[in-house]
Nucleic acid binder design. Sequence first.
DNA 1: CTGAAAGCGCTAACAG
DNA 2: CTGTTAGCGCTTTCAG
Lengths: 337, 337
Amino acid sequence: MRRSQITIKDIARRLSVSSSTVSRALRNHPDISIKTKKQVLCIASEFNYQPNGIAQSLKNMRTNTIGVIVPEIKHDFFPTALDGIEDVTYKAGYTIIVCKSNESYGREVLNTRALASNRIAGLIVSISQDTQNFDHFKSLINQNIPIVFFDRACNEIDSSKVLVDDFEGAFSAVNHLIERGYKRIAHLAGPKHLSISQSRLNGYLTALNKHNLPLRDELIIHGGLHRIDGRTGVKRLLTLEKRPDAIFAVNGPVQFGAFMQIKGEGYKIPEEIGIIGFSDDPISSLVDPPLSTVGQPAYEMGAAAANLLLEEINHKEDFFEPKIQILKTKLIIRQSS
Amino acid sequence: MRRSQITIKDIARRLSVSSSTVSRALRNHPDISIKTKKQVLCIASEFNYQPNGIAQSLKNMRTNTIGVIVPEIKHDFFPTALDGIEDVTYKAGYTIIVCKSNESYGREVLNTRALASNRIAGLIVSISQDTQNFDHFKSLINQNIPIVFFDRACNEIDSSKVLVDDFEGAFSAVNHLIERGYKRIAHLAGPKHLSISQSRLNGYLTALNKHNLPLRDELIIHGGLHRIDGRTGVKRLLTLEKRPDAIFAVNGPVQFGAFMQIKGEGYKIPEEIGIIGFSDDPISSLVDPPLSTVGQPAYEMGAAAANLLLEEINHKEDFFEPKIQILKTKLIIRQSS
DNA sequence: CTGAAAGCGCTAACAG
DNA sequence: CTGTTAGCGCTTTCAG
């Protein structure tokens, strides 16, 4: 029992006019007489006419939909970024479609394809931890669908990006740990191929170096970006002959996982082990002890990404010069360090 | 500079065959010769052909997309429910479009309309705290688009629903508080018009009654479902001549807000004020002190809603008997009560 | 002010 | 095995 929605044709038939007249009346075209318009509107509302967006999109060769792909929405960062994206795009008359990749490359490819099939006007994306091949994005660009990356970007692709000063943020966090007196500082790092992992690792290394602390390979653990990676990372670190006295985590979920594991194993924070991480989850301030973090301006990042995308969508010339925007992080010191 | 995606026609022209042949070849129709298929596939991949999903949907009069509207995604409940929905629908070959109403009736109406315009195959929704008029949903149903409600449902509409035993959960939570020795138990209740608010309030009242505790109007505060409502509710309660010694919160965000406010004002939990709420956020176990809650099976609720919706979508007869599924909650006692 | 006709990209019935 | 044709619902010339 599909089909039952009333169409322009139905209205036209009922009023013995042509469908073009109805179409124009509905869009309030000046050519149409007030009387006809009234009749059309009347029938339309009586039968609850809803324009078929699919047919409109097909005709227009584009939609008013913007796709967004994020790795997850269980921690505060991405939902807050989505708020920023939403507020900006809604104001401009766009609807957003949100997809989660669940940190999986396969899902990300599927999502990208589905969005491309629906001829989205543009895509805003933060890549999954597993993504190392970018053909799915390149193919979108070949189809003239603009992409803006935020937070986790792809170096290989020349498109607009919104990032934070990952190096700077990591540096200041580790610098802070050192100034607090911690000596054996471990880093729960992200996947090596991600640029955020690289920049944050660099910040860590540079801070150690500045204070003449030795670099110990066993204190750097590359893993994924899930909570579980924080847990397993800590488990490994705590079996070392000389365990670390502080931990710098690459992102929020990893920091939480690490935190839970440390607590679970009965170590005292911050006395026995200090911890800091990238994230700005308000929950950080509620746990025991409240967590020190490098705060990222999630809402602003989302809003900035949306603005860049809209700019590119509305750009008429053939060539659009991609823009890279870098926002500031903020060191938030609480009681875990 | 839109349009540039290659179409079936382009491939047909290039091979000097008809577009139907190409269409069939792409869908691996048995009629087409292997040779032709190969040629078509070859050109298709060479030029990175992507089928135009919009045209397909228009033709088929339906999409493989399921719409989901949730009030928010900043606490664990809805993201987890989304996981359940996603896992079930993906397996069945559907894509989901997630929209947030941000607890606003206006946004919910807009979202519903946008989804209807895109001719979704069905809708899964948990209504916003402000929703009291349901015409937008009724109009979807008139268009033969099935709806399944979960958690926050609409009584007026005869459709499938997935709920939890709200009364039972509330009763056991308050019963627990009473057995712990709390006497002046307040209830931060939800908006009066929502059925979850009503059922949970009933559970609260019944528990008081069972233990012959007096019902005090000033201890029942109806508000919204945001964190801020927890904060303001607690503020008011703490100015009472005789302040409550325990609080039962209608949902997770309200519980968190209440918790933050109580801590902020310097009261000791659970000694001075006990607190329990509906929610199953893993974060509850991390805060200080860990929060007692009535756990809801969020993933299972999402999965159940998705299954009910698929059932209805695939239903061939004219009339589908809506099903109401009620899942169990689980009292989780930690250290806040 | 209104209508006829064409076409967006794809599919399916029908005809070879 | 392949082509022709028509049509999904809507918009948009172009022609009255």
